[in-house]
Amino acid sequence: MARQTLEDLFIHDLSDIYSAEKQLTRALGKLARAATNEQLSQAFETHLQETHGQVERIDKVVEMCGIRLKRMKCAAMEGLIEEGQELIEELEKGPILDAGLIGAAQKVEHYEIAAYGTLCALGKQLGREDAVKLLHQTLEEEKATDQKLSQFAEKVGNPQAKKG
């Protein structure tokens, strides 16, 4: 389906982030198991639960808007997850891997922040205020997760990696 209208673009972008979130639900458990630091592992587990809620929120947006998502695979998320997997395969368990996992997770968060920000802007243009409220809620969760990761990296992860 060609993206010829703003509505087409909204559906495409919503389909893309839906795929991204689904992929992320499969990857976060791996990150949690790979992390050495218990707080970091728990943060990944917490974000996994949050991500399930975000998928449900997208389902609500789809229902509210009366649209049908396209079956697609988010190539960007696939690449970001692959980068995280490479870290897990290449680095020994420990503080250096943890620092790398934090960076990989922040790349994911930044992608999601951009995606949800775009969806909110498109939704506003289309007059889909109810959908925008739900999408904005997810946007704020993604920003909060990014901030938590930054704080963890600065206070715990990177100092431990420097020692190690």
Rank of each mutant, 00 (worst) to 15 (best):
Ile67Ala: 10
Ala114Trp: 12
Gly123His: 06
Ala105His: 08
Ile58Glu: 04
Gly79Val: 07
Ile113Pro: 02
Glu140Leu: 15
Ala32Arg: 05
Leu24Thr: 12
Lys124Ile: 10
Glu38Val: 13
Met64Phe: 08
Gln39Val: 13
Arg26Val: 02
Val61His: 10
Gln106His: 09
Leu69Cys: 01
Gln39Lys: 15
Leu126Tyr: 10
Ala114Arg: 13
Glu141Met: 05
Ala34Tyr: 02
Ala32Asp: 03
Leu40Ala: 09
Leu80Ser: 12
Arg71Glu: 15
His110Phe: 03
Ile96Cys: 07
Asp98His: 11
Glu50Arg: 03
Leu122Pro: 12
Phe44Asn: 03
Leu40Phe: 10
Tyr111Lys: 03
Lys70Ile: 08
Leu119Asn: 09
Val55Trp: 01
Gln106Trp: 08
Lys93Asn: 13
Lys124Arg: 14
Lys73His: 15
Lys107Pro: 00
Leu101Ala: 11
His136Leu: 12
Glu142Leu: 06
Gln85Pro: 00
Gly84Phe: 04
Phe44Arg: 07
Leu122Glu: 12
Ala121Asn: 06
Tyr111Ala: 05
Ala105Ile: 03
Ala27Met: 02
Ala131Ile: 07
Arg128Trp: 13
Gly103Glu: 14
Gly100Val: 09
Ala43Asn: 05
Leu48Asn: 08
Ala75Asn: 14
Glu140Arg: 14
Arg128Gly: 00
Val61Ser: 06
Ile96Met: 14
Gln137Asn: 12
Val61Phe: 08
Asp59Ser: 11
Gln23Ile: 10
Gln106Asp: 11
Ile113Cys: 06
Leu80Ala: 10
Gln106Glu: 14
Cys120Glu: 14
Tyr116Thr: 08
Leu97Asn: 06
Thr138Lys: 06
His47Trp: 01
Met64Ile: 11
Ala43Arg: 14
Lys73Ser: 12
Gly66Lys: 04
Ile113Leu: 10
Arg71Trp: 00
Glu89Trp: 04
Val108Thr: 14
Ala99Arg: 09
Glu45Tyr: 09
Lys73Phe: 02
Leu135Trp: 02
Leu69Gly: 02
Ala131Phe: 09
Leu134Phe: 04
Leu135Thr: 03
Asp98Cys: 09
Lys70Thr: 07
Met77Gly: 11
Leu126Asp: 06
Gly127Tyr: 11
Leu101Ile: 04
Lys133Leu: 10
Lys70Tyr: 09
Val61Ala: 11
Thr138Ile: 05
Asp130Thr: 12
